[in-house]
């Protein structure tokens, strides 16, 4: 894995490098104490930095170039994944992937936004920004899952729906709106996980569900901090303040009643331990699905609608 290091991660990486060096050159046991000491310091440093993250730093973590993406989770969590392509109307959007998979013995339909790792794959994936056909493919797969009573898992990780000319021609707004409507009446369980970036309607377009889970260092809001800065402050330079004002982290959203559960990430963030985070997520998903599979479809739909009906705050 290529290593990208964020500014606030640097002290941890520097100390870890020192530790590596020490281990490499020390074959005698008299420095074992020293190694243990540094290990402890690394651990403490990590805890210090990660327990005091600003909202903007969380946004940076959510966008970390090494962060696991939808297909990474699918590969690590499931066997038997079979990707299904196309919306049967226009094309196959590479910014949303989906298909049948098994989590343990539980069949699921997994659908998620997919970013690329490098320039080439990012162009292929359109940086995880779907066009209307992406949302329509997602809906087609959800309907397919419904037909065979297979629950749906969606993974949100997008900087937004693609703001392009053709996207508008083909009805970006209609595609998202249609999904919100149809997902509200889907007769199988839907578990939504925000794994990275949850930018506005582009994220919500596959984000209606019975349980909304969110990774500790993901963000989810009505707009990205940068765009919010450019509109409300009329400058791109207020992204940190915008991130604070938007209250877009997992703990914020739990407080606002937008999400149900925060999934803790391994020390240093999901990108430091793919296997661990995939294992944690798989366990949580199986637990949630087990509970949801017991609920009758009518009740499930009714509860799902009521869940979203209750969101918001007003007076009078």
């Amino acid at each position: 894995m290529s290593k990208s290091v964020l500014d606030f991660e640097k002290p941890i990486f520097e100390l870890e490098e020192k530790l590596d060096e020490l281990r490499r050159y020390a074959d005698n046991s008299d420095i074992a104490d020293e190694v243990a000491k540094i290990e402890k310091r690394v651990h403490q440093l990590q805890q210090n930095i990660f327990s005091n993250l600003t909202r903007w730093q969380r946004v940076q973590l959510a966008r970390h170039p090494d962060r696991p993406y939808t297909t990474d989770y699918i590969n690590l969590m499931s066997e038997d994944f079979i990707e299904l392509h196309g919306d049967r109307l226009f094309g196959d959007d590479k910014a949303i992937v989906g298909g049948f998979a098994r989590l343990g013995s539980q069949s699921v339909m997994i659908i998620g936004h997919q970013k690329g790792r490098d320039t080439k794959s990012n162009l292929y994936r359109n940086f995880g920004m779907p066009n209307p056909e992406g949302y329509r493919k997602a809906l087609r797969l959800m309907r397919l899952a419904e037909k065979f009573n297979v629950p749906v898992v969606t993974m949100l990780d997008t900087p937004g729906a693609y703001p392009g000319l053709e996207a508008e021609e083909r009805g970006q707004a209609e595609a998202i709106a249609r999904n919100l409507l149809e997902m509200s009446s889907l007769r199988v369980p839907i578990v939504v996980v925000i794994i990275g970036e949850g930018a506005s309607g582009g994220a919500l377009g596959i984000g209606i569900g019975d349980r909304i889970l969110m990774l500790e260092n993901a963000w989810y809001s009505v707009i990205s901090p940068e765009s919010c800065s450019s509109i409300l402050w009329r400058s791109w330079n207020y992204k940190e303040q915008a991130a604070e004002a938007l209250q877009l982290t997992a703990p914020d959203l739990k407080k606002q009643g937008v999400i149900d559960l925060i999934i803790p990430e391994p020390p240093g963030g999901a990108h430091r331990d793919y296997e661990r985070i995939a294992q944690i997520l798989k366990e949580v998903l199986l637990e949630e699905l087990k509970k949801l599979m017991k609920i009758k479809p009518e009740k499930l739909v009714e509860k799902r609608r009521a869940k979203f009906a209750g969101m918001g705050e007003w007076a009078g």
Binding site: A177, L180, V222, A245, L248, A309, G312
Partner: peptide, 17 residues
């Protein structure tokens, strides 16, 4: 924008209804 994710959830709420 000034109500953050709660505003976004109004899309979900109205569509669900």
């Amino acid at each position: 924008m000034m109500e953050g994710a709660l505003s976004l959830m109004q899309l979900a709420k109205t569509s669900a209804k």
